[in-house]
């Protein structure tokens, strides 16, 4: 067990322990992600993948252990951490009443000032050109997911935490997202992702297996 955190790592979890409904999800779980690395969190259903990602975001605080961002405890620099984080969870964060453009205006503006032209570019890139002003309840589930994923294009976060981002996407969109993830990683970003699909990305790709609770490299 190392004392003192790894300054190289963007995000590091140490000795994480979490139980839910009197069942231990994981214990003594330690891992780190660096810039230029994609870490895929694997595990069977109910192994705590979503819980782990929510703990890392700070949405869930029922755990023990320490979390470090750039070698410093996250709780000591929460704003800095949140400014560097982009999370997409099971719930898309897309209001069904608003249009894609209105949705992105708000979720973008919570972090960084964003021009409408950039929003439209991002929507075009995820294949929603012409849908900018359509209320999201008129979009299909896959299209709503794309609105959510367009946030990856307009945001400036270095750390992406994505929980099952591939569900409801069609084959083409899946490939596009894989390219997007690899691009982000090659640019020095870090990605933490859960998926049941066989991830094919052209970048450093490691796996954190919650069933085994240890990291092994697959590249």
């Amino acid at each position: 067990m190392t004392i003192g955190s790894n300054p190289e790592a963007l995000l590091e979890g140490r000795n994480l322990y979490c139980e839910r409904d009197e069942r231990v999800l994981f214990e003594q779980l330690s891992f780190s992600v660096q810039g230029g690395q994609l870490l895929q969190v694997k595990g069977s259903n109910g192994s705590g993948k979503t819980t782990l990602l929510r703990i890392l975001c700070g949405l869930n605080d029922s755990f023990e252990g320490e979390l470090y961002f750039q070698g410093q405890l996250i709780e000591e620099q929460r704003d800095q951490y949140l400014a560097s984080l982009l999370y997409i969870g099971h719930r898309s964060g897309v209001s069904r009443i608003l249009s894609p453009r209105e949705n992105l205006r708000w979720s973008g503006a919570l972090h960084y000032p964003i021009a409408d032209a950039d929003i439209d570019d991002a929507l075009a890139e995820v294949g929603l050109r012409g849908y900018e002003d359509v209320p999201c309840h008129n979009l299909s589930a896959g299209q709503q997911q794309r609105v959510s994923l367009a946030r990856l294009l307009i945001g400036r976060a270095v750390l992406w935490i994505l929980d099952e981002p591939f569900t409801t996407l069609d084959v083409h969109a899946v490939a596009q997202l894989e390219v997007r993830l690899a691009h982000h990683v090659k640019n020095g970003g870090a990605v933490l992702v859960t998926t049941h699909h066989d991830l094919k990305v052209d970048c450093r790709h490691d796996v954190l297996d919650l069933d085994a609770s240890r990291v092994r490299s697959s590249v």
Binding site: C57, A83, R91, G93, V94, S95, I97, L110
Partner: peptide, 17 residues
């Protein structure tokens, strides 16, 4: 309620504001 159900609330909580 609607924000909770569609996940916008999570995004709000994760904003650096």
């Amino acid at each position: 309620r609607a924000d909770y159900e569609d996940g916008s609330l999570e995004q709000l909580l994760l904003s650096p504001q």
